[in-house]
């Protein structure tokens, strides 16, 4: 590609905390591909599901502040987090569907001297890889043998209700990427079944009941690991796996990788630069032996 690809990058709050391995690996892989991620200046929390549950216009205005700042750059705004993706996209949809809400949001933004005209292209990082970079370029960069069986777990909000071109029920972008990297995609019918999202912090018992079948299904289909594209999904399946084992008397220990970590492994990027030591369920030495050597 002749010109360097540049994007405005919105990491989201989890990037600084539980989603850190995602953040580290996303940056490492993009650097490797010579893709520029320009972090949005002084970005604020998108508000996620919580703010919209409490305030209507205020939650949307807080999300819209980011879009107003991004607008002047003319670049696509990329986020790795599914909840940020949906929250920021929602502002645009409301802008189109509800002129009165649009006016109210802009009235609020004007209190800080800002205005959002509408039309920032908000996109999920997954689709930058599948649409812009493409399978050919990805497979051309593979340096390590990924003989891994992988269960692709998309979760909800990356494909619902807004999706770039994928199916809201049975998406395939991540499947394609895994195959292009040389991995084996296992049959994983629960790929978009909800992991419980933020309910894990609210009603753990119910939430674990939602997360458990996702692990079980991956193990039964013979997967060596699960791959996700959402920091909350990864947290629920990885950090809470020991709680699932405790409650259900199971003994699961399946690694849950971010798709950016998988790409990094296939590219032969050093594991330390992919944050793999931050995954709670360790990425198996057996799988590793088959994989990267350089």
């Amino acid at each position: 590609m002749a010109t360097k690809q540049s994007y405005i990058y919105y990491p989201g709050c989890s990037a600084e905390a539980t989603g850190k391995p995602y953040e580290i690996s996303a940056r490492a892989v993009c650097e490797h591909l010579d893709i520029e991620l320009k972090e949005l200046a002084d970005w604020n929390c998108c508000g996620a599901t919580a703010y919209l549950s409490v305030e209507d216009i205020a939650s949307m205005a807080v999300a819209a502040r980011n879009l107003a700042i991004a607008e002047s750059t003319g670049l696509d705004l990329i986020t790795p987090c599914s909840a940020c993706y949906i929250t920021l996209s929602k502002v645009d949809h409301y802008f189109e569907d509800y002129p009165d809400i649009r006016t109210k949001i802009n009235n609020a933004l004007s209190a800080a001297g800002l205005e959002y005209k509408g039309g920032v292209n908000v996109r999920h990082l997954l689709y930058v890889f599948s649409e812009d970079i493409g399978m050919e370029r990805l497979s051309g960069m593979v340096r390590a043998d990924l003989s891994l069986r992988v269960a692709p777990y998309y979760g909800c909000q990356v494909v619902r209700p807004f999706t770039e071109r994928d199916s809201p029920d049975v998406p395939f972008a991540m499947d394609e990427i895994i195959s292009a990297l040389g991995g084996d995609v296992v049959d994983y019918p629960l790929k978009t079944k909800c992991c419980s999202g933020a309910l894990i912090g609210i009603d753990e018992k119910t939430a674990l009941g939602l997360a458990k079948p996702l692990i079980e299904c991956a193990v039964r289909s013979g997967a060596d690991c699960i791959v996700t594209c959402c920091p909350l999904c990864q947290l629920n399946l990885d950090a809470y796996q020991y709680k699932i084992n405790k409650v259900y008397g199971t003994n699961y220990h399946i690694p849950v990788l971010f798709f950016t970590q998988l790409i990094g492994l296939a590219f032969g990027i050093d594991e330390g630069r992919l944050g793999l030591n931050m995954n709670i369920v360790p990425y198996r030495p057996a799988a590793r032996a088959k994989g990267a050597s350089g």
Partner: peptide, 20 residues
């Protein structure tokens, strides 16, 4: 914390007065 905390609070205050 973000730098523009005061601006953000101003947005929120105004937005709450515009609530649906």
């Amino acid at each position: 914390r973000i730098k523009a905390r005061n601006e953000l609070r101003a947005i929120i205050r105004k937005a709450k007065s515009e609530s649906l």
